[in-house]
Design a protein around this nucleic acid. Structure first.
Lengths: 343, 343
DNA sequence: GGTCACCCCTAGAACGTTCTAGGTGATGGT
DNA sequence: ACCATCACCTAGAACGTTCTAGGGGTGACC
């Protein structure tokens, strides 16, 4: 017995006693077939279990109606965005193709497969690639960068107002009476520079001295930075971490050093990922709205593809962040109660 | 100016002054071209930036060499497996296609797109679908289920020895002097039944009474179960949660109730996801080896596809788990020190 | 009765590849 | 001189779809 091939247009046409072209017309739902034939063909197709072959469709059509999405498979925030992208693409007539970045699979590789799949535009979530590389890519097809601010010709960006987010956090801390606030930055991670600058500006606005130390996006970075802070001369009453994951490293190190959070030191994260909401961690953090960002990113890509060429200037969509106050921040301790190094 | 089309075989052929067929031969690396021509064609192709069009290749060939992977985009453990699958597929000549399951995108939908993409086999990570649905799917193409035990005709499975894992955890606790151990189960989540049974067996092996309460796979499930436990008459000295995420809910509720972990109650998770390793959580847990499972799953799929038809019986690959001891477990408290409800 | 418009339908050429079925010469054995 | 064999090459038919160009009909209007 030979394996039962999937039915094709020709099979439907033969069984319905019409031409392939007519079946194609009916399947695409375009005008040009009589109601009687339309109904019969549809019935035969359903009977045979016909489903069009996307490969052949794409080969013939110039358009693929595919939106490529690059994301970090281990990044919780990316997962939120991906979920939003699927939802947003639903109504646009575009299909979503995923390509993951892992330790062993660099961004260039992930994007290469998206290009090979004939995606018409790519959405890159938190890309680390160089500006020039992104510029080159944007010369080939519409590129929307999500969760990273970028000023590259032809590249659209959808990002959180990082500086404003940090500002909210600083305002919150100042309101609670904190004045010695340290920012653990994200090195050259996406948005790190914006947050660093936002921190400086916000502190100066309050007449306070901004102190930053170098950190990173992993928990270990937060832990190491915290160790350095605790060993240093200037003990803060509050710490602003680059992101939630970094903040968990901070919390951990403080916890092990016997520092009470938030009684002695308040801690603030960034992203409002799932981990921040775990009540065991209970982190005050700056929320990035993944679903809104996803929707905007899809809109941008679709506008580029469907719209006229007038939209040639890259657009920068900024989504307002929100402060989510949880249990890791409280009033600044009075000086005598603040944490002191053991003699 | 018209947009510069990507080069095709015909372009290379024309520029090299040979036939399309010969270029195809050279590009595929099959014998049948003179060294001189081979070199020249390769050079022209590289010059033009020719890359073969996968759509056309697939249309022509009966094989697609595509492996479909369904995964939960929010599941950290799935991310580990996906990473492993990419790595394992690298050497097999198969390409990986991802399809995510989200709240708004059910498994049936995710698999449907994989089928539409002409995947030759699908790897399903922690599927919740019914056995009969999976059986039907397996009639169409090779199906490998990862991280769920399943006994369905034609469906391969790669899973952790759940019962053994739970056994390791129970042994560990008994060794530490615990005797009142409660298992918060996973309801009908993948593997939950195995773990429940494994728990019962292990406890009985030690001559102890197994007590289970119903839980689930989210943190909220762990939290609710813990509240019920704390309100009930039989206070345990140790809690075994269905998975790490559930365990974080347990930890949180205990923490809020003022119960010291591990001094008064020890807690054990399952999976060894990233969150367990966060030193702020520091959870003793049963490790599932994602990369080994991924490798086995890819091997099974490829064996089905490349191998002869003799391999018709479904195979069940069981991966040994390992106990990862961290800070959430310690010696059982002496009775007078155990946690007592306030009057 | 011509011709114009319209509706319904079909033949056949694309799309970019793979692959079968040859077609050259050149070499070598008889 | 003839046939094999070989190494190299090419024409052209697939694959399953879309889409252009056009082929009847039928009815309406001059």
């Amino acid at each position: 017995m030979s394996k039962p091939r999937r039915p094709v247009l020709a099979d439907v046409a033969k069984q319905a006693g019409v031409s392939i072209s007519l079946v194609s017309i009916v399947m695409r739902g375009v005008p040009g077939a009589s109601p009687a034939n339309r109904e019969r063909i549809l019935e035969v197709a359903a009977n045979l279990g016909y489903v069009p072959d996307v490969r052949a469709q794409m080969l013939r059509q110039e358009r693929s109606h595919l939106l490529g999405v690059m994301f970090g498979v281990q990044q919780l925030f990316h997962a939120d965005v991906v979920e939003g992208i699927y939802a947003a693409a639903e109504t646009t007539g575009y299909e979503v193709v995923l390509s993951a970045v892992t330790d062993a699979r660099p961004e260039s590789r992930a994007v290469a497969t998206l290009l090979a799949d004939h995606c018409e535009a790519v959405l890159l979530i938190g890309p680390q690639s160089s500006k020039s590389w992104l510029t080159d890519l944007a010369a080939r097809l519409p590129v929307v960068v999500v969760a990273r601010s970028i000023n590259a010709p032809g590249v659209d960006a959808v990002r959180t107002a990082e500086a404003k987010g940090i500002g909210l956090a600083v305002d919150h801390l100042v309101e609670l009476g904190h004045s010695r606030v340290i920012h653990i930055d994200g090195g050259d991670a996406p948005g790190a520079d914006q947050r660093r600058r936002g921190f400086r500006a916000a502190m100066q606005r309050h007449g306070l001295t901004p102190v930053s130390v170098s950190g990173g996006l992993a928990d270990i970075d937060g832990a190491e930075a915290t160790s350095r802070i605790l060993a240093g001369p200037n003990l803060p009453t509050a710490v602003l971490a680059y992101n939630d994951r970094c903040a968990t490293g901070v919390l951990d190190t403080l916890y092990r050093a016997g520092v009470k959070v938030p009684a002695q030191i308040s801690v603030v994260g960034f992203d409002d990922t799932h981990v921040a909401g775990l009540s065991h961690i209970d982190l005050t953090t700056v929320r990035q709205d993944a679903s809104v960002m996803a929707r905007l990113a899809v809109q941008r890509a679709v506008a580029r593809l469907d719209g006229s060429d007038e939209q040639r200037t890259p657009r920068d969509s900024v989504v307002p962040p929100a402060l989510v106050v949880r249990g890791s921040t409280s009033r600044a301790p009075r000086p005598e109660k603040a944490w002191k190094r053991r003699e």
